[in-house]
Structure formats: C-alpha cells, structure tokens
C-alpha cells in the first residue's frame, strides 16, 4: 500500500475538475456552499476582501474554525498556509485538511523560498501569473495550479490576464525549435525537464483552476472557455446579496459554460454582487499577486 503518491495528489485535483471551490468562514457558510453544489470549500478566518480591508499580517486560520468546517461538510476541505510557512502547512496536514493552498492571500512567511511540497502527504495548490511561476511550483511539488488573479477585488481582469499569459507561454514553448528550449526554460526560471513535459503534452501536467476576482456566473463561464479546469470563488459569494442563489448559479455556469441561454437564465435576479475594486486604484505594494517567487 502506498500513500501520498503524486498520482493520489494530482488525482484529487482531477476529481475537482468542472467544479467550484468556495471560500467559507463558518460551518453555516460551508453547508450553504455544499448545498449549492460546491465540489470543495476553502476554510478561512476571513475572506480575501476582508483581509484586504483589515491590513496587517494575515496568517493561517485558527484550527478551531477549520475543524468546525471539516465537521460540517462531507466535501473536501482546503485551507491556506502562508507562502514558505512549512509549519503552518504541517499543522493543517496533521488536522486532516484535504488540500493546502500555499497562498499569496496571506502574508508571506519567507521572502525567497516556497514550501517543499514534495515532502508532504497532503497535496498543495499554488497560484501563478505565468508559466514560469506555475512550473516552479509544480517542481516544488504542487499537485494543482490556479491563476492568482487579484484576490478580494471582485474584478476578473487579473485572472484573465494570468490565464491568458500561461496559455501564451505554453504556445510559445510548444512552437520553439528544440535547441532553444533550454534557454527559454532559463528565461522563465522553470526546470528544463518540466518544460519538456509541457512541450510534449501541450498543457500543464496538473489541473489548472481560475481564481482571484471571479464574482458572477458569466465570469466563471468565461474562465472555463479560456481553458481553465474549474473555478475558485473567494469573496464573490459570501460578500454578495444572496450567497446561496449566486453559489448555485456559478456551479451551473461552470458545467454548462457554452450555453448562453442557460447562462442568461441562471444570471437572473441574483441580488447585489460584491462591490468591485478597480485594480489601478490598488497601490503596487498592496497587490497580493506580487507575492510569491
């Protein structure tokens, strides 16, 4: 018998595909998410919009909150650890969390290195803005990738930018003559072997979700059409007027992302969406996407 194999780690991500992973802060919210059809929840002390508003240092959630949420639902429960904070990650693993998000939403704990994720039994998901970042995280052992977007803004533009950038980088890698690949790997700061794998398959070797600014069913469907495997919705649900209804609509949008009549139907009467933030009004130093190396 074998546990913690790469196949088991990437395999759970494969099972999450075509689904919506929702940020929740209470057992009640977790139940609403599960009832709406979420394929997993992210257990947090505060959603990104509130972390952004509160400022200061954002850390791993209190284990009590995560445990209560784990008890409340039967779907997988994810939780966030700070970038590089391998002890927060070990604590979450010991609690039996199903997936760890080494996340730029929290304040980084290491200004040079990410967690060595290969050493863990629990799988990790990490954010990226381009292929280089994605492949560095995969080389470190990430079993799932997501766009960073700009969390807590309800503004999809950064998620779109990051998704397109990754795809653009992959297309470039695939059409380069083989003798230029090593230099391209150097340019984007990614290991050559992983670059060769991406080149061979024409895609990332792990599941890739959209995250960071998705607030409506239309946002979710657009990210699916751009080629993402599924969607994280952070503040977008529980910072909106009617979370249960919006959550259910986003779940449907991710499954039938090409059916515009259905998308029109499910987008009706969802109540107030979360208040969005224009990215240009956020000073560069406060953009969470800049965190990670």
């Amino acid at each position: 018998m074998e546990q913690g194999s790469l196949r088991l780690k990437t395999g759970l991500a494969e099972m999450l595909k075509g689904g919506v992973i929702m940020d929740v802060t209470t057992p009640e919210q977790a139940k609403i998410a599960q009832d709406a059809g979420a394929c997993a929840v992210m257990a947090l002390e505060r959603v990104p919009a509130d972390i952004r508003a509160a400022g200061g240092v954002a850390r791993m959630a209190d284990p009590t909150i995560v445990e209560r949420i784990m008890k409340a639902v039967t779907i997988p429960v994810m939780a966030k650890a700070r970038i590089g904070h391998f002890v927060e990650a070990r604590i979450l693993e010991a609690m039996g969390v199903d997936y760890i998000d080494e996340s730029e939403v929290l304040t980084p704990a290491d200004d040079k290195y990410h967690i060595n994720k290969r050493e863990f039994t629990v799988p990790f998901v990490c954010g990226c803005r381009n292929l280089g970042e994605a492949l560095r995280r995969i080389a470190e052992g990430a079993a799932m990738i997501r766009t960073k977007g700009e969390p807590g803004t309800g503004n999809v533009i950064e998620a779109v930018r990051h998704c397109r950038q990754v795809l653009d980088d992959i297309r470039r890698l695939c059409c380069l003559p083989e003798d230029e690949v090593a230099n391209y790997a150097k340019e984007i700061g990614a290991p050559l072997e992983v670059c060769m794998l991406v080149r061979k398959e024409g895609r990332l070797p792990v599941v890739n979700f959209a995250a960071g600014g998705i607030a409506t069913p239309a946002d979710a469907a657009m990210m699916m059409q751009l080629g993402c495997d599924g969607v994280f919705v952070g503040s977008g649900i529980f910072k909106s007027g009617d979370p249960a209804k919006r959550a259910k609509a986003i779940v449907q949008a991710v499954t039938n992302y090409n059916d515009y009549k259905l998308l029109a139907e499910i987008s009706k009467d969802l109540g107030e969406p979360m208040v969005g933030i224009d990215i240009s009004t956020i000073p560069a130093a406060e953009r969470m996407q800049e965190r990670g190396w």
């Binding site: 494969e14 099972m15 999450l16 595909k17 075509g18 689904g19 599960q34 009832d35 709406a36 059809g37 979420a38 394929c39 997993a40 039967t74 779907i75 997988p76 259910k248 779940v251 449907q252 499954t255 039938n256």
Partner: peptide, 15 residues
C-alpha cells in the same frame, strides 16, 4: 466518473 457525488447529484436534478 469520479468527482463530488453531492455536486453531480444536484446538477443531475437541476438539469
């Protein structure tokens, strides 16, 4: 396929 049975079950009903 594999996935989340609660998610798939709800979508089967809704659709």
């Amino acid at each position: 396929p594999g996935g989340e049975s609660t998610t798939i079950g709800k979508l089967l009903m809704d659709l």
